[in-house]
Design a protein around this nucleic acid. Structure first.
Lengths: 337, 337
DNA sequence: GTGAAAGCGCTAACAC
DNA sequence: GTGTTAGCGCTTTCAC
């Protein structure tokens, strides 16, 4: 149990054990054509020295590292963290290791195609496969398997998404059933399928109820609290303001609630608020918020399981796994008198 | 903008641009001895082809990758996620990239020294430096800089920890001030400094108040809800049960509250509960819980900044950064009559 | 059953 | 200012 002074290589192990590097490599990779005695000896030296193979070297030379990767745009983003949590859960008790990757360099993240460049850096060398969160380009390709979560468009890649439109319909119909006729919609990221589908769901529900779709009640957002606040201010300064607001996700819903309170409105007495995209913690952050729960954690779990299947050469049951949304009614809404 | 068929190498770029691989390498690494014209041409080819250098190859060959790593035991663990969030925040707008690494293979994680082996696989090749969360061995060494968070012991490595003892004293004294004399202590991971210091703080506060330290009121835990429940059951079936319980972290506190409720106790009427180690979300999960807030997120942020300094060859202000705990009083406690 | 040697994609001397 | 070349640590034929 000596501590590694400088980097320990396979060569050090080989010399200490008195064998060749190829023998050590065979032991490392559990090849069966090694004498039991030699195997034991090498294993002992590995343990003694505290050797572990360099992921970089292994990845470069061989096609298999037993590492799967998750590519996210920002590690401090709640969606990313929740997704990672689900992937971590799926990886548990498997032989796989997990790498989550993101870049701090914001300008490179806002330019289209950042995913592809980061992907190339990892996949096929360090990782055996990757999960890409909210890709904004469909131009993704990779030597190793790929699964996308909440993609840009319905592409050909294996994907995981939620029943966004159905959820948005449920949420809107809930408000309509309460008697609301003017419902403000705070949009999500319009470059993502999820953002588009939630808008469509909202519009679809209005259509079904024979209610007009009014442009002044639809604002573009981006899944942030700031967008929620901004849109809420716009809606609430309208000559004829909405009686309810549908936020495209819980982050935006928080912003909506903040803005409403800042304007002296009480929720739900003066304004009903619902939100999509609920992550477990948000249920507590906004305990009063009626939401459609999308279970991002479950999306990560599903994506990881799809990826593991692909890596192991199995075929997928569904090319696109749909995570079901479910309406969670709390006391943030009130029947309209 | 063609899509990469198979893996694109520096060689492909060189051939397409009609230059040598070393020229491409020079462009990639922004060396200044490249003709402006050549530089332009190569950059264009790189963009056209959508080339990005293999992290594995770069890491193996050069000492610098601009990637920092975080090593955690489990990606689905709340502590890890919260820590990652802080690191992500610190990395933002820097040129660094971030890799979070964990292994799903549980047996390898429970055996001592897992950190060292995982560390070796990444550091000095793929990453320029690493942050290790809750290492359970002090036998860590690495060619590249290392920062530990909530370590095993007070070692020589640059570290980030919280004012655990002070926090535990504050929390215990708060209960004592309310008149509580029998306070159950649900311990944390005793192999971590944080677990030991919280216990010491609890004992210290009792000492200062001239209260006896009773072994039947101290149970070992491990920062899980299950441990909290288990300990609570033990305490509450005592002939002379405690009137308050101090849980070593919020996860355990949740377990304590569950157990108490299952036994038909009301909180805080029948039992006062306090907890340490509050993560922001937990404040909402247990809105009724009086806690000491340790801001794990802030620990990650501090650790990342220390690591960046080390990588850039700057010296540290403090070898061990202390994140301050602060008492957050809510309604989970009641004065003892 | 084991060793020697080629080479993965890249960088850093060293030539020119 | 640019090309040639020797490895980084590892896996994998191919000999023996």
């Amino acid at each position: 149990m000596s501590r590694p002074k400088s980097t320990l290589t396979i060569r050090d192990v080989a010399e200490t054990a008195g064998v060749s590097v190829s023998t050590v490599s065979r032991v490392l990779n559990d090849k069966d054509d090694v004498a039991a005695e030699t195997y034991e000896k090498v294993q002992r030296v590995i343990a003694d020295l505290g050797y572990a193979s360099s992921l970089a070297a292994t990845g470069m030379r061989s096609r298999r590292t037993n590492v799967i990767g998750v590519l996210v745009i920002d590690m401090s983003d709640p969606f990313s963290l929740e997704l990672v949590k689900g992937v971590g859960r799926a990886i548990r008790n498997t032989e796989y290791e997990l790498i989550v990757y993101s870049s701090g360099h914001v300008t490179s993240n806002t330019e289209p195609g950042w995913e592809r460049r980061h992907l190339v850096r990892l996949n096929g060398s360090i990782t055996d496969g990757m999960i890409v969160a909210t890709p904004t380009t469909s131009d993704l390709a990779s030597v190793s398997p790929l699964v996308v979560v909440d993609p840009h468009v319905n592409g050909t890649l294996p994907a995981v998404s939620a029943t966004n439109q159905e959820g948005a319909i449920a949420l809107t119909e809930y408000l309509i059933a309460l008697g609301h006729r003017r419902i403000g919609f705070v949009g999500g990221r319009t470059e993502l399928l999820s953002g588009q589908q939630r808008l469509h769901g909202y519009q679809e529900a209005l259509c079904r109820a024979n209610l007009p779709i009014e442009m002044e009640l639809i604002q573009e957002g981006d899944y942030t609290p700031e967008a929620g606040s901004r849109c809420a201010y716009v809606f609430l300064s309208l000559p004829h303001p909405p009686t309810a607001i549908f936020a495209a996700n819980d982050q935006s819903a928080l912003g909506v609630m903040d803005a409403a309170k800042a304007l002296g409105l009480r929720i739900p007495e003066d304004l009903s608020v619902v939100g999509f995209d609920n992550i477990p913690q948000a249920a507590f952050v906004t305990p009063a918020l009626t939401t459609v729960d999308q279970s991002i954690d479950e999306m990560g779990y599903a994506a990881a399981n799809m990826l593991l299947k692909l890596i192991q050469g199995e075929s997928l049951d569904h090319q696109c796994h749909k995570v079901l949304t479910k309406l969670i009614v709390r006391d943030s809404c009130q029947p309209l008198k």
